[in-house]
Every structure is written in C-alpha cells, then in structure tokens.
Nucleic acid binder design. Structure first.
Lengths: 182, 182
DNA sequence: GGTCGCATGTAAGCTGTTACATGATTGA
DNA sequence: TCAATCATGTAACAGCTTACATGCGACC
C-alpha cells in the first residue's frame, strides 16, 4: 500500500521523500501515516525496481535533496492498481477496543478515566482536521497549485475523518454513561 | 498487541490456539483479526518467555490439541498493560480511502461502481454483527458460560462496530451522490 | 547556547501475510 | 466423492517501528 501512496504523490510532480512525508502529514494523516525511515527505504527499493528514478540536487547551506520522478513502469502499476477495484472492506485494528473488550475485571474508575481521556483525544483530532480543511480549501485551492478536482477527492476522505471522529466521540460518551450506571 | 489478546482469552480458561481463533471470529473480528499462523507462533514464543504453559492432549480420531494455560508472569503483564491507560488515539489505516484520495483522474463511472460495491460490503458487515450480537445475548449470556459483566464489555465494542459501519455507509452514500453530481 | 527545521540514511527487531504441509472424520 | 471441520505447524517474505546517526543554518 505504501508503494502506491508514494507513486500517487510523485505523480503530482517530482518530489523528495521529505516532501512526501510533509504532504502526508497535511493530507493523508487521518487515514494513513508512515515514518520517514519507511518512506526512504521504500523509495530506494522502488528505484531498483524501475518504478521511479532519482537525482541528487545540491544546495548551499542545506543538505542535498534526492528528487524522485515517476517512470512509465511506476505510472503503469499505479494505474493498474487503481483500475482493479478493492473487493473487500478494509479490516479494522483498533487497540482501544481490545482494551475495552478485556476491561470487565478492571477498576471501573480507571476505565471511566481512560474513556474520558479518549473523548479528549478524539476532540483534538477534529481540531487538527479543521486546520487541514482550511489548508485545502483556502491555501491549496485558491493558489491553484493542485487541480480543483484533486482537492475535491481529498476533501471526500477528510469528510470521512470528521465523521469517524464524531462517531467515535458519540460512542465513547454513550459508553461512559453506561459505565457510570453499572 | 496480539500477545495481550491471546493472554486475555487464555485468562478465561485454558485454551488451544484453534479455540482462540474461533473465539476471535465470533467476538473481536470487528476490531481485530489474526491468522492462525500468527496465533500459533506467538503462543509458542510466549511459552518460551514463561507467560503461558502448554500441554498436549491426545484425542481419538482428531489431531492432538495443545492446550495453553496462563502462568503468573502472563497474568501480570496482562494486568500491567490494562492498568496503564492508552494515551494516544489508535492511528487509522484505511486502504479504501487511499484509493479515493488518488481517484480524481480515474474513470468516474468506475469510481462510482466501486463506491456502490463498498456500500454492499459494509451492509454485509452489519448482518454479520447482528448474528454476533444474537450469539452474545442469547447463547452466551443465557448459558452463563461467560460472566454477564464480560458480555456487557464485549457488547460495548460491538456497539462501536455497528456505529462504524453505519457511519461508513452514510459517508459512502453521500460521496456517491456528490460523485454523480460532478 | 539550545532548539527547530531541513534532509537523508542504516540497522535491528517485531508484526503480519501468504503459501505450503499433513491427515483423520463427518455430512451432503 | 467432495468439501468442510478439526488441529497444528513451518518458511519466506513483506510491512512497520524504534533507535541510532549526521550536520548546517536560523532564530530566540
């Protein structure tokens, strides 16, 4: 999956691993994240596979930049991936639910405190997503850096981010009141 | 994480890897899944670490069963893990959103078809969760196999499963209509 | 003087997936 | 006869995290 994300970004134009990481933090963070170590190693592997090419750019004062460009083979496997629809729902892995699942024998007050903490954590996510939305709608769209249609699709995914956090907070709030009644 | 899930199940009573896998499919599947290969290898590793012990049970006709029991060290690290609250929201990795994010240049009809397919996939999830709910409320709770309080907590996580799928379908439906208007 | 941003990388280890492998019994 | 269920395992790989490592310039 990380491979297609990297190809997807480089398709917008030649890019360094560092820039991809920055872009991900301001666009895909609500549904996908990666450490810089994984991005750099995967880009190198993709270069060996002939999907992308790179060239070093020297800079005064700053460290050198390795700029990656999309090669035909890379464009092709990205397009092939997009053309074949995903036929199964993505399985969920939600650590917090594992904890709740096994929390029947815990101190009820500690469980309640943890649920309260997570309400706060998910409220903070919404604040972050609002900043992302502003950035997409005001900075990127107005400056015409990225085509409008791209931003529309990015906003679709952000919409899901908001809905997810809203749903999560509702569930936490309901669970909190049930725990208090027990 | 898989380690704590295995310990959590074995805490209910001695269990084989096969049984843990079955239990997971009827209880944690909506927020965590694991392949049998990972379960078996992790159980073996945990035995070497002194967290669980196992004994082979011979059976006529059927293959031998390796039954795992919780050791004090295993109970302790499970309790320690539960006592330390999770202080960050679980990051999401949602393949389908990656596809939507990079779908601006795809054939709109193919994107629409894929969104429709996912509405169906998530509706099917709800049907499965309803069967799980019946199993918990009617079979398990009435037969008094598992303490009522445990089932309450399991139902909390299942409630999240329903809410997630409902939210997902609402988002897909909204996205579908926006795509059709474009 | 300290931290932040720029910019890249390696290495070790853990987690997770896919495929291969066996073999008896039960029921359609 | 065919598939499913019971029951366990190994091996190869792919994916991901954490820590280590460098070094300049700008700003407070």
């Amino acid at each position: 999956m990380i491979k297609y994300i990297l190809l997807g970004f480089i398709k917008y134009g030649p890019m360094t691993g560092y820039e991809i990481k920055q872009n991900m933090e301001h666009s895909t963070a609500h549904f996908w994240h990666a450490h810089h170590s994984q991005i750099y190693t995967t880009l190198r592997k993709m270069e060996q596979e002939g999907l992308v090419s790179s060239q070093l750019q020297q800079q005064e004062g700053s460290p050198d930049r390795r700029v990656y460009s999309l090669l035909p083979a890379g464009r092709q496997i990205l397009n092939e991936w997009l053309e074949h629809p995903q036929t199964e729902a993505t399985p969920i892995k939600e650590d917090f639910l594992v904890r709740i699942f096994f929390s029947a024998t815990r101190d009820p007050q500690e469980v309640i405190a943890e649920v309260r903490l997570h309400i706060k954590l998910h409220q903070e996510k919404i604040i972050i997503y609002q900043a992302t939305q502003n950035h997409l709608e005001n900075d990127l769209r107005c400056k015409k850096i990225v085509p409008d249609r791209e931003i529309d699709f990015w906003l679709f995914t952000l919409d899901m981010g908001f809905r997810f956090e809203k749903m999560y907070i509702e569930w936490l709030t309901e669970t909190l009141s049930r725990l208090q009644q027990m």
